[in-house]
Design a binder for these strands. Sequence first.
RNA 1: CGGGGCGUGGCGCAGCUUGGUAGCGCGGGUGCUUUGGGAGCACUAGGUCGCAGGUUCGAAUCCUGUCGCCCCGACCA
Length: 612
Amino acid sequence: MNPMRVSRLMLVTLRDDPAEAEIPSHKLLLRAGYIRRVSSGIYAYLPLLWRVLQKISAIVREELNATGALETLLPQLQPADLWQRSGRWAGYTAGEGIMFHLQDRQGRELGLGPTHEEVITALAADLLRSYRQLPVNLYQIQTKFRDEIRPRFGLMRGREFIMKDAYSFHADEASLKETYAAMDRAYRRIFSRCGLRAVAVEADSGAIGGSASQEFMVTADAGEDLILTSADGSYAANQERAVSLAPAAVVLPGGARAAGHGETLATPSQTSIEDLCTAHGFDPTQMLKVLLLLARFEDGSQQPLLVSLRGDQQLNEVKLTNAVTARCSGQHGALLELAPLSVDAVAKEGLDPLPFGFMGPHLEDALVAGARSWPPRFLRFADTTAAELEAFVCGANRVDAHLVGATWDSLCACPETLDLRAAQPGDRCQHDPDQVLVASRGIEVGHIFQLGRKYSEALQATFTNEAGVEEALWMGCYGIGVSRLAQSAVEQHHDAHGICWPTAIAPYEAIVVMANVADASQKDLGEQIYADLQAAGIEVLLDDRDERAGVKFKDADLLGIPWRVVVGRGAAAGQVELVQRAGGVKQDLPADALKAVLVGAIEAERAGLPAV
RNA sequence: CGGGGCGUGGCGCAGCUUGGUAGCGCGGGUGCUUUGGGAGCACUAGGUCGCAGGUUCGAAUCCUGUCGCCCCGACCA
């Protein structure tokens, strides 16, 4: 129950927006006294927020326990050798690495857990021996540490944050998929029970690895991710993953010229697609653009890339990263960086300058053959839209000239063709060309992965199958940013006056405000209602401060308690006012009718939104 | 790490260009009045101007260095 009087709450609210905050939810959590910054990306969760976090955690526990998952608690201090065995120690500690690490008094290296695949997989290797024990799913709710390159927006991207992470182990892929689907369903229930509008989107699995992965996004304008959704709701993806149909290309008048080698066109200083189209009346879809990039790998090696795209399309770097990783990471380790090839980098390799702005897909390997440290050839890719062009305009590989009416094969063989373009809002959908992708912004609050056997193989986590053969475990992992979820709830539920918590995760369900504590009838009735509501099972806060009514109303709005009971002028006649925070609807009613009204309303709201 | 900006009582800011012994609003304390939407009046406490050097008779102000914080990019729950 934990009833509470505001006078005892250590409540400090701020009238002005703190200078450190940018987005509404961050400002409001600071102003309403929910959090305090201790250092960059490190926050104290004050008592009111801790109640919110515990309510979210309780919902998460209920839903995961209902799937048969087991709650556990793993160490945050993790030995380096565990991470060396999975091959992630160097990547996570050196350079851009995200893991805080230290040495103990013996000089042994330790890391502060940014995630727990290593620890849990080592435990699985120790404890899971037979297919008879499978599947199992373990989860924990605890603080994670990540030395973020740039912490920001309060709890949205902290260096220390609360996460629920779960790891499942299976005898085969079918079992993994079953648990993955069960977690998908549990996640949808968790977010809707928390009162959040969330959408599940296809996602890139990034550094965690594995095959399928899906993110859960709380829709909000301040979200860091761009989501593309079809109007019928059957397709939704993070832009870094999204696929779509590109607009049809406008056929190049005259088609192929000079037997597909193209006619030379003088294009002085016309280095951009836009310049060329303006000067010569081309359509961007008739152009072929060539991007040069440089990939840098874990082993220190570098590889120049040549990517062909249709002129109207944008490169999706995540797709390219995945393509390069698939080709090269076996030999060179993880891809650390993908950056546009600079004039300086070319010069540093001792090469002649490249015709930037006038390059065609037939740019010869000979141009990089003499490089000091690069391999003597480009790694070449073409996006599907570029590969499908019959005849196109492209750079002539010398300054101030382009080719018109060139074709693949005549110019050069079309390189490996992949989907490398960024899907855009307005693009037609692959599943139904009559549907169009629509953009919205989202905050990633959950992510589920089918990891496969990446970690179990690295850490020799095996079991004996039905046939008596040793086999690597199949794994899934499933995360929810608990503290981030709390802040995204504020981002989604606030107005000009403050927070409007969904009842299911509000720190208190109701606040009783005695307008004037010097008035004995108000004070007596307020105390009585406070006691009655507690007895009725409502989590209630009593604002007993000797402040003017206006101050208490402002604070109640800022705090965002879903229901406010005002005991004021009508107290002597037994009348009170009931105000719903979201929407601000007010009603006057007799004090003895209050309990029934409030209990009914709050019981309905505790369930959150209808499940999706 | 690259680019941009900011550090002045608890919070939000002015003062800095043109050096001369620190100010405003909010907040805190005391008293009186007020009491349904961040009250009024009076009194009061609280800052070696992020830190370290330097220039100067004199530095919040000019110079150098350094630390911290915020915003834009790569990363992610």
